[in-house]
């Protein structure tokens, strides 16, 4: 490559960059203006279905509107979202080269202080998770929050080298992961078989059913979070796809 070519190339790159900045900047600005104008033009007053959702709250089995929406009014959406979590785990398994954790070696024991701290924190985290789960009936809380806290406990066990999910068998892990999705599935099939609308909860027993489904969902969410941390590419086991290849592919 001659010097002349190099100069040309540099100029070309600069010109392209300029075009990009101008276009992207103008576009982003215009989009932002559009959104602001749209929001300013929104109708005044109480938003959407909040009032109606509150009005029907007595028939939902829970006292907190958000939980009612998530697990009664729109439980179908929540079911699909739990499905998203299951899919995330499957995607991780796909990257690792198998739907099993047997080649995850136990983490080396770290320093004793961490172990001590873990021992102290795990019961507290578990308790918090249970509280959050139960709280969902009346106040902000519920399966997702509880699941993440419980999952954090699992991850912590793993990071400190204490026996954790990796001691649980392959089949059991899969059951724990799927149990949330299955809970909704069973509810859907059972309600159909009982002659109700799909996923319709009879008002009298709605509270219990919701708590049960939420508990199972919490278990799945917690397991999912813990497995995500355990099975990450950073963990000891070699991932199915060599990072070297990925780098090479990314450059092309």
């Amino acid at each position: 490559m001659t010097r002349h070519d190099a100069t040309l190339r540099r100029r070309r790159r600069r010109a392209l960059l300029r075009v990009r900045i101008v276009v992207a900047g103008a576009g982003a600005l215009a989009l932002a203006l559009l959104l602001v104008a749209a929001v300013l033009e929104l109708p005044e007053g109480p938003l959407g279905l909040a009032e109606e959702a509150a009005a029907q709250l007595a028939h939902t089995g829970v006292d907190h509107a958000v939980t009612a929406v998530l697990l009664n009014y729109r439980s179908y959406d929540t079911w699909l979202e739990v499905g998203v979590l299951l899919l995330a785990v499957m995607a991780i398994f796909a990257l690792r080269g198998g739907a099993h954790l047997e080649n995850v070696r136990p983490a080396p024991r770290r320093d004793p202080l961490l172990t001590w701290l873990t021992r102290l924190l795990i019961p507290m985290l578990t308790l918090t998770a249970g509280y959050l789960l139960w709280l969902g009936k009346f106040a902000p809380g519920g399966a997702f929050q509880a699941g993440v806290v419980l999952g954090a406990a699992g991850a912590m066990l793993r990071l400190s080298g204490t026996p954790s999910l990796d001691r649980i068998g392959d089949v059991a892990i899969r059951i724990l992961l799927a149990v949330g999705f299955l809970a909704f599935l069973v509810a859907a099939v059972a309600t159909r078989l009982a002659g109700l609308d799909m996923l319709e909860l009879p008002p009298g027993r709605a509270g219990d059913i919701i708590l049960m489904v939420e508990t199972l969902a919490t278990i799945s969410i917690a397991t999912t979070c813990a497995v995500l941390v355990m099975a990450m590419p950073g963990a000891e086991s070699p991932p199915a796809i060599a990072a070297k290849d990925v780098r090479k592919e990314a450059r092309t």
Binding site: R20, V23, A24, G27, A28, A30, L31, L34
Partner: peptide, 16 residues
């Protein structure tokens, strides 16, 4: 990505 993003934004704007 910069080009793809810019194209995306431009199409939103143009449609609007």
């Amino acid at each position: 990505w910069p080009v793809a993003g810019a194209v995306f934004v431009m199409i939103v704007i143009t449609l609007a």
